[in-house]
């Protein structure tokens, strides 16, 4: 067992939520909601805060049994392999087109294998590595400032409810990982307050992080451009002409790879740890096999067609596992107590 400080808890949650979709969510959202997407994201921010608030209020009642816990492990396995497939596809087209995907995959999962066969503290402190990278990323983004066109934010038509609803569905991608709040909350030291100001600060950081990314790409590309650009943030950096480096996008890509490796590692950690809460500690052989299975499955999924399908499915799966199951588990626990 382990304990978490409040900062460790929020940092873990931040990596769970940002590591998976930060690079790609903008394109699909803007594609369906156009200029409405930034207004929609403000609405999504409120929903996200409400969800965190409810999670904090009822987290003590969230005690899933072995069956539900294993469903979550399957879901996280799906998130890991789909995310890993997407990263590898992106690395293959942006960075290493000739390197066999299994090698890059093995490299990324190898870090997780090492960390997951060590003490939990190793994993818990891993997200600290990304902290110094965030200012660099923000600095790179701000280089595009002179090229932003503010009129791209308009017109807004919130009466177009069809596109708003579709957008609200796609924006759920940014919520992926929020269910970790329920699983990790009980490990936060009892004397550390989470509710109120700390929760609001976390929500604000989450919101600003995603919103800044969305606003920058929205201001940078004309709407028609999003049909061609699937990773707008990377393309935005590729457009920058700087004297100190030929390809600014590669800088960001390496930052993002480190971010992704950490995200995968902590997702795998959660799979192993949640299993451990119901059964005895898995052997290293089991952990190795689990990692091998992840590499094989994600290598199989790393094609354009398959990624398209799993990205679509992952949002439905997320809604089930971050809204439906928590609600059912919490309600059943309440009835049980009564």
């Amino acid at each position: 067992m382990f304990t978490l400080s409040r900062i460790q808890f929020f940092l873990l949650l931040f990596v769970f939520q940002t590591g998976t979709v930060f690079l790609s969510f903008q394109s699909r959202l803007i594609d369906v909601s156009g200029t409405n997407s930034w207004v929609l994201f403000i609405l999504a921010g409120l929903l996200h805060y409400l969800q965190l608030f409810l999670f904090e209020k009822f987290h003590k009642r969230f005690n899933p049994g072995p069956f539900v816990s294993h469903l979550y492990i399957v879901y996280w396995f799906f998130i890991i392999v789909s995310f890993l497939a997407y990263i590898n596809y992106t690395i293959a087209i942006w960075l290493f087109p000739n390197t066999p995907q299994i090698v890059t995959m093995a490299f990324m999962v190898g870090v997780s294998l090492y960390a997951n066969t060590r003490k939990p503290e190793t994993l818990i402190n891993l997200p600290v590595i990304i902290l110094p990278m965030i200012p660099f990323f923000v600095l790179f983004l701000f280089m595009a400032l002179p090229e932003l066109v503010w009129t791209y934010l308009f017109p807004i038509d919130v009466t177009d409810y069809k596109s708003m609803l579709k957008g609200l569905f796609f924006v759920q991608a940014t919520f992926i990982g929020v269910e970790m709040f329920l699983f990790l909350r009980k490990y936060v030291k009892a004397d550390e307050k989470v509710n109120g100001k700390p929760l609001f600060i976390y929500q604000s950081i989450w919101f600003l992080f995603f919103f800044t990314g969305l606003i920058f790409v929205l201001l940078f590309f004309p709407l028609n451009g999003f049909k061609f650009v699937t990773e707008p943030l990377l393309y935005l950096l590729k457009f920058q002409k700087v004297t100190f480096v030929e390809r600014l996008d590669l800088f960001f890509l390496f930052i993002w790879i480190s971010w992704s490796i950490i995200t995968i590692s902590i997702y795998i950690f959660m799979c192993i740890h949640v299993r451990k809460t119901h059964y005895k500690s898995p052997s290293n052989r089991f952990i190795i096999l689990f990692h091998v299975l992840i590499v094989i499955t994600s290598t199989f999924l790393a094609t354009k067609d398959r990624i398209e399908i799993i990205r679509q499915v992952s949002i439905y799966a997320h809604i089930v596992f971050s809204v439906f199951f928590p609600a059912v588990v919490i309600l059943m626990n309440r009835r049980g107590k009564q």
Binding site: F96, V103, A106, F107
Partner: peptide, 14 residues
């Protein structure tokens, strides 16, 4: 066996 293979990542794209 494993460590050198990790460092090979990228050699294909040299």
């Amino acid at each position: 066996l494993a460590i050198p293979s990790i460092f090979l990542g990228g050699c294909w794209d040299e």
